[in-house]
Design a binder for these strands. Structure first.
Lengths: 334, 334
DNA sequence: CTGAAAGCGCTTACAG
DNA sequence: CTGAAAGCGCTTACAG
């Protein structure tokens, strides 16, 4: 392996001068610089990043811990974060936590051990009660569907307001019996709980009774589970004219079940999702959804993290992403 | 920052003994080991990975360069590779090449500079003519939809046979005028070209004329472009009863366009895709597809790379993934 | 079973 | 504009 010393020797300068050239620092005579560069080229030298990292105490790598990258929403988010990381010359290592609180804590604990300068933690398992565990002396940004009033910067989804807008949209389009499909409501800060609050608020404001039978709770966050739940509800005689799905991913199963049951969307039942995943606009019927500005979320998360990495020590920031409601065929009136 | 020396001092041993404990090497007296571990705990010491990497000459990190992680196929592939990497204690850094040959070459060139032990390169832009550029003294596995007879290990998609099976399936179901929708056919080793060969082979074998008007070529690989192409073809009076889509992602746009045009799938036209992306089975109608065993591809790619990282120097391996044809509603006969 | 010393390849004050 | 020297934090032969 060719080292900086080999170059120095061959070019007749000191290692330090080579280093200065490599880092394009000023105060190197042009002729010297040219000679060094030529030698680097001749010997096919490449800087050893591990050594540089050790010396500089930086790795230019951040971790991104998300539940799963193969779920469209997180794939799109991951892509946006990699994109934004590149703007700051940061590599992104992706870890998958599989929606478990333990894995999220592990990612947090290991990120110092691994070679990251900071971590973006997509928290779906951690909750308010874990706040003490978030007190780490390491740059971390929480990318939360959940709420944290903790000690860390937090980029949050517009869960309550987004869900409120979605349900309000269904009501405007004439729905009065609106099913909500989501995961467990047992944690105060879970995405399902937060979005459900928006659902209830919209119903209350419209003077619609919140019939608990209309709330379908899934054990697993998946289209399969959503489809099964809808089948079961309809078989049990539940009647409804609208469905609010906690995510587009879940809506995929809901729409499929309705098709299986011969229930027409949007004529018999209107459906709306959350996340506005790319494929949603190509479904038949195309799916209305809440778009939480993924790009903005990614940009903000990376910016906040870079700030902390660079020593920023202000108060923890909480940023709630804005959103837009995208009305498509699944909620059309005809 | 607490270092190994601080621990050594506090525990009354040498740094080397601490190192031995950290790496759970034998030949450390139990009582010494216990004392060191206690001190590590007391002082909240964590090993500095950058230093260890420098010393060991390994980073336990591999790069994965794919066109985009927000495309479902690559998201699912990325997830599988991260999963498999974990089995070997490897972190995975994801880079996005955006389907460009230049970016793929950059990823290749930079991977040595970055801190990777090896690289898995999802090549969609590089072609046979770039083979010389692949002669790198660094562990690289090509994850190709394309064919390479180059100097590197290569995990390939069953492009020809998979496409052949898909089209044969359409023919079996009664289709005789089968549209093929894919990207440019200008490169010999492009995924579109390879799959198109399978398409033509199936037609030829069935004695069906290969009408060039039935081949729709997209400038951009996207549902939008696919949808536009189908609209245009139908508007121009093209008649057909089957569509072979180069990927499920493209099929999304095709199915959408057919719905817009009032063409019923599968009654009027049958449609099949390639990749068997997760959402395909939830579409309405659900999409038939070729499943290329993503998990096997990921496992094989990681295993081959680990082999090279560990010094394996045998002949370059070419592994073609097996596939299964998944028949769903979009090609059903009723 | 344990230690002293060298060194991985780079960068950074400190000099001149 | 350039250099000699120290050091980032760890591990690895070499000794004993």
């Amino acid at each position: 392996m060719v080292t900086i010393r080999d170059i120095a020797k061959a070019a007749g300068v000191s290692p330090m001068t080579v280093s200065n050239v490599l880092n394009s620092r000023p105060h190197v005579k042009d002729s010297t610089r040219a000679r060094v560069l030529q030698t680097i080229d001749d010997l096919d030298y490449r800087v050893n990043i591990a050594a540089r990292n050790l010396r500089r105490g930086k790795t230019h790598t951040i971790g991104l811990a998300v539940p799963e990258v193969d779920r469209p929403y997180f794939g799109e988010l991951g892509a946006a974060i990699i994109e934004n990381g590149r703007r700051h010359d940061l590599n992104v290592v992706i870890e998958q936590t599989e929606r478990s609180r333990e894995n999220e804590l592990t990612a947090l604990a290991l990120s110092r051990l691994r070679m990251y300068d900071g971590l973006i933690l997509g928290a779906v398992g951690l909750g308010e009660s874990d706040v003490e565990l978030l007190r780490v002396d390491f740059p971390v940004v929480i990318l939360g569907e959940r709420i944290f009033s903790g000690p860390l910067d937090h980029v949050a989804m517009p869960n309550d307001d987004g869900a409120y807008a979605a349900v309000q949209h269904l009501i405007e389009r004439g729905c009065t019996r609106i099913v909500a499909v989501h995961g467990s409501l047992s944690h105060d800060t879970d995405v399902s709980t937060l979005r459900h609050a928006g659902y209830r608020r919209a119903l209350a404001e419209a003077g619609i009774e919140d019939d608990p039978r209309l709330t379908l709770t899934l054990d697993v966050f998946s289209p399969e589970a959503a489809s099964a739940a809808v089948h079961q509800a309809v078989d049990a005689g539940l009647s409804f004219d609208g469905v609010f799905c906690v995510t587009d991913y879940v809506a995929l199963g809901v729409m499929r079940a309705l098709a299986d049951l011969g229930i027409a969307v949007p004529d018999d039942v209107k459906v709306i999702g959350f996340d506005d995943v790319e494929s949603s606009r190509f479904l038949t019927p195309s799916l209305s959804s809440v778009n939480p500005s993924k790009d903005l979320i990614a940009a903000k998360a990376v910016d906040l993290l870079v700030d902390r990495i660079n020593g920023g020590s202000g108060e923890a920031v909480e940023f709630v992403s804005p959103f837009t409601l995208v009305a498509r065929e699944s909620t059309a009136v005809r």
